[in-house]
Amino acid sequence: MALQILLNFLLAFLWAAMNDTLELPTLIMGYIMGMIAIYVIRNFLPGSFYMIRFYRIIKLIVVFIRELVIANITVMKIVLKPKINVHPGFYAYPCELEEDWEVVLLSSLITLTPGTVVVAISDDYSKLYIHGVHLTDADEEIRGIKSSFENVIKEVGQP
């Protein structure tokens, strides 16, 4: 992916040099033409077309913002009731991601949604221990996290 972005910038500069100017609209036009050229020769470069990866990253950010707002409303309902009855709990979550940066991204996203905080990670990166504020059923929560977060991160990680 880095090679494709570098080639795209070089093609943009080549276009600006052939038009004998260095203004911003010419560079943007050269960038778009370079993107078309790289799309045509995408089978000869390593990795898939990088715009697909950008689209998956943007989808991840949108999913994350929606989860953040919904879970904040849940915490607000817990705090504002007259009598608080929360049942917190620790549970273990089996994780199936392989690379290091994917595990880091998953635990950051789990910690950022309210109601779950990652407390410890086992040594071989296969289990995450999570503390939840209001825990009705541990298996249900595991399934919720798996369906919403882990699939999207696995899609980003594919080359």
């Binding site: 904040n72 915490v75 929360v86 917190p88 949604t113 905080v117 503390h131």
Partner: peptide, 17 residues
């Protein structure tokens, strides 16, 4: 909230948003 771990949830995450 009654417990230190629960207060951590409210303070760090809600105030961030």
């Amino acid at each position: 909230l009654p417990d230190m771990y629960s207060r951590l949830h409210a303070a760090s995450i809600s105030s961030t948003l």
